[in-house]
Design a protein around this nucleic acid. Sequence first.
DNA 1: CACTTCAGTTATACCTCGTAACGAGTGCGA
DNA 2: TCGCACTCGTTACGAGGTATAACTGAAGTG
Lengths: 235, 235
Amino acid sequence: MSGQARSPRERYREQTRAEIKEAAVRQLAQGGVEGVALLRIAKGIGMSGPALYRYFASRDDLLAEMVVDAYEGLAADIREVDLTGGGRTALGALAGAFRGWAVREPHLYLLIQGTPVPGFRAPAESVLRARAVLGPFLKVFAEGRPLRSMDPLVAEFAQWLRDDADVAAWVGQWTGLSAEDAAAPVALTGAVLAWPQMHGSVSLEVAGHFSGMGHRPATLLDTQVTLLADAFQLA
Amino acid sequence: MSGQARSPRERYREQTRAEIKEAAVRQLAQGGVEGVALLRIAKGIGMSGPALYRYFASRDDLLAEMVVDAYEGLAADIREVDLTGGGRTALGALAGAFRGWAVREPHLYLLIQGTPVPGFRAPAESVLRARAVLGPFLKVFAEGRPLRSMDPLVAEFAQWLRDDADVAAWVGQWTGLSAEDAAAPVALTGAVLAWPQMHGSVSLEVAGHFSGMGHRPATLLDTQVTLLADAFQLA
DNA sequence: CACTTCAGTTATACCTCGTAACGAGTGCGA
DNA sequence: TCGCACTCGTTACGAGGTATAACTGAAGTG
């Protein structure tokens, strides 16, 4: 995926960077974002503090890369879902993969979808990765026939599709639809709506807000997804 | 609201505590949770560092109290919503109040619903406050007649209602229903389902994940609420 | 009026990020 | 093959954070 190592130095550098990120993820898992400390990481690897600054400009830099990696991991899981058959079955499978990844890597999910760091930054790369996650949803919702109550939202997204060529290209890439196609805004609406729908229950579950409540989080997510499928009359 | 100040010392103490929390909220607003530093707060008030430890056992302690206060503020806004008429109108008003508070105090919303701090704690008091927020939703959904697709979730909440007397009491307090009443689990399901439904779009909006997207967050929330109202066939 | 209690101070220990200045090894071109 | 440059990693340091300890002064209490 990344460019092949040109020099042995490059190779070593890349390997060390990976090792650092690995240790950072491990620390993230126990201690949250606040627990990710360069000094601790260095000690774990066997290096002394400031050495890490040869590999990452700052702690925020490291975290930013971890965000991108996490998005990539989630997108990879989503990408592997089998969409043949389409309809609500495919949607359920996508949502299940989404939640599955989040439950398996709760700290990573909180890192990318949780509270933004202090002076929150929106690295363009993250937006691209987020779109990679939602892409497969576009495919599913392209076949949707939304209820009347969806009209206002569909209208807004149709407008966006007209104004933003990047988004139009993104939708086209996953559905083959052009921006003028009537199904394009429908696909976009469905995919974007699926996001808060899933995030709602998954983030509360992962953050532990459901602890002590007498329901299975998976049932809750399934129910939310069903609402969505109904609204788009998916097969 | 709090007990009357017995001695002038008590009065002064209470006042100082409030002043500290005020400054903390101000710092939270600009700089996020990480920006809340006792030293900075002390400097702002005109005290010197360790003095604050007379009023709060630790930084986490201060944050915990801020969480409780924030829940109380949100609950107060929700409590003021006019529910006469009921049905989807009332539900929409509740959701609007929920989002209104979050948008007005984004840092506070992220504080209470965002990523839990390092070794996340679940103070019992927070649970009570969260229930105060969802209480009015119970009232609205008590009139609901859920679609068949809601059955699995309703069944799980019915079980919870049977197992947990506290929850049964909470539902009873807001609806007048007993745990055996068929409408009780329905009300509970609706209210609890409304939570992730609203949290999904509101948290993404507040965290800035919708920036650059061509839709009005309010429309998105309205759409999600409509899905929910449909599922419970609210009037 | 003496005595206790509490607010607030400075000093200190420890941890974090991040920079600076310095040594040591590697790899590359002449 | 030799030497230079580049990069890696080290220690030293400063700023800023949490939290404790020990001390001072002033308020409230009998």
